[in-house]
Lab assay of single mutants.
Amino acid sequence: MEVRTIKVFTTVDNINLHTQVVDMSMTYGQQFGPTYLDGADVTKIKPHNSHEGKTFYVLPNDDTLRVEAFEYYHTTDPSFLGRYMSALNHTKKWKYPQVNGLTSIKWADNNCYLATALLTLQQIELKFNPPALQDAYYRARAGEAANFCALILAYCNKTVGELGDVRETMSYLFQHANLDSCKRVLNVVCKTCGQQQTTLKGVEAVMYMGTLSYEQFKKGVQIPCTCGKQATKYLVQQESPFVMMSAPPAQYELKHGTFTCASEYTGNYQCGHYKHITSKETLYCIDGALLTKSSEYKGPITDVFYKENSYTTTIK
């Protein structure tokens, strides 16, 4: 009895394709271990004539594949690729409408935090270190965002349907971005203890939790000093293409032309909904596939993004 075979390709990165001759009487799992086709788990399936010449994702289970996976995804987590594939199996079914010149995501599976993050990423200057993220990001900007969303979920250790947080998501993504040249110098002034300067680099240099107003941050924000008295913390120097200011959701007025974009969060910790506000020729609110415009805006804002380049204080 002759062994019926077909020729397929296996890959971990969709760049390096490895030619395989597979036995049609055995499952993919018996031949390769966990195997995925377009995100779908085909591990328990036997090869079919229609699979001839198709590319299958496999887990990096030998040295060659491990090197290829690390170079593309910059992670050695053995569960990463499987999590990416199972997320992709959902995100490829989502709709990605162009809204006001940006790629958004039609609401499904509690994905409003991903839509808000995706919209924000198209408006701030950011370059990702893992080629996987950078490639998928370019495709997302062009309207094909399924891979990018699935990668975000995998890097953030999230599953489809789980509630997510924009600030946490951005923080994970910033860790995989090139923020080497970003720098922030802060000064804390206390009447009792004097003053202390701190220099922050990388992710810490672009994120701040405690106030939404970048102007206020430049002037000074009140913080408790270690001595128990009130101290003032203010920005001395900022070198970065953008800054992200966050605070627990509270009524906040966004003035046209003073910011790049913002995240609105309605609801409580267990259950809520994100919308995205962007400042173009007027203010726009993007909620999944829905767009509304207004000249002014007041609502429960939790993150505001500002364009920056270089700032030095005039406070002496």
Rank of each mutant, 00 (worst) to 15 (best):
D62F: 00
A145R: 04
A205D: 01
R141N: 07
Q31P: 08
Y306A: 04
Q230C: 03
L59M: 13
V3L: 13
C227S: 01
T302H: 03
F32E: 00
M244W: 02
V304K: 02
M26L: 14
R184N: 02
A115Y: 00
Y113M: 06
A205K: 05
L65E: 07
A40T: 13
T35N: 09
E239C: 10
G210C: 00
T313I: 12
Y138I: 14
T5Q: 10
I286T: 03
C271W: 15
L121G: 04
F56I: 00
I124R: 06
V58Y: 01
Y113E: 03
D135Q: 11
S310I: 15
C261V: 05
S181R: 13
Y311H: 13
L179Y: 00
A142N: 14
F80G: 06
T282G: 13
P60T: 05
Q31Y: 14
M245T: 05
G299H: 05
T19Y: 10
S181T: 12
S79M: 14
V42I: 14
P131T: 01
N178P: 02
P131D: 03
D303R: 05
I152K: 00
G164K: 05
T232G: 02
I15C: 10
K106C: 05
Y138E: 14
F174P: 06
Y234T: 08
M24A: 14
G272N: 01
S171R: 15
Y252V: 13
V185R: 05
D13W: 08
E168N: 15
G29F: 09
A115H: 09
A145P: 11
M245F: 15
Y84F: 13
N110T: 00
G267H: 15
A262W: 02
L283E: 05
Y36F: 11
S213K: 04
Y137M: 15
K7I: 11
A250F: 01
D180E: 13
S310G: 05
V189P: 05
L118K: 06
A289V: 11
Q230L: 13
Y57F: 12
Q230K: 12
L151K: 01
T232N: 02
C261I: 06
K201L: 09
S104H: 00
N309M: 09
A40S: 13
E296G: 12
A250C: 11
Y252D: 08
A231N: 03
A150D: 01
D62G: 10
G267N: 14
G161E: 12
E239G: 01
N110Y: 05
T302L: 08
T199W: 03
C182M: 03
L291D: 10
F148V: 01
A154K: 02
L291V: 14
F217W: 06
K183Y: 07
L254T: 00
Q30N: 13
Y234S: 06
R4W: 10
A262T: 00
A150V: 03
Y57A: 05
Y137D: 02
C149F: 03
T169D: 08
A231M: 04
K54P: 02
F80R: 05
Q20Y: 09
T312C: 07
T278M: 12
A140M: 12
N89P: 07
P300I: 15
E144Y: 10
C156Q: 11
T282R: 09
I124D: 00
Y172D: 07
C225S: 01
T232K: 08
T43P: 06
F70S: 09
S104T: 14
T199R: 07
P97N: 09
V203F: 12
T19K: 13
Q270P: 08
G194R: 01
L283Q: 00
V3H: 11
T64Q: 14
P224C: 09
K95P: 06
P241F: 02
V3R: 11
F259D: 02
T226Q: 14
M170Y: 06
R167W: 03
V206L: 04
P249L: 07
Y137I: 05
G143P: 04
L163K: 15
Q230P: 11
K280T: 12
Q216R: 09
M207P: 06
T258A: 10
V99D: 00
T211F: 03
Y234K: 08
Y73S: 04
T302V: 13
Y138P: 11
G82V: 15
S279F: 00
N89F: 12
D165G: 11
A250M: 12
Q195N: 11
A154G: 03
F9D: 09
R66H: 11
A69C: 14
L186M: 14
N111S: 05
E281A: 06
G101P: 05
R66I: 09
G267P: 11
G194T: 03
V3P: 14
D77T: 07
T76I: 14
Y297R: 03
Y72K: 08
A117H: 01
Y269Q: 15
T103P: 01
Q31A: 14
H256L: 14
T159W: 08
I223A: 13
V236P: 03
F70C: 09
G210R: 03
G29P: 05
F9K: 14
L200W: 04
K7C: 12
K44R: 14
V243F: 02
V160F: 06
Y214G: 01
T10R: 07
C156I: 05
S181Q: 15
I15Q: 11
E296A: 07
P300N: 10
C271V: 09
I105L: 05
M170R: 00
H74S: 05
S181F: 11
G228F: 01
E215K: 07
G228I: 02
N129K: 14
Y113T: 06
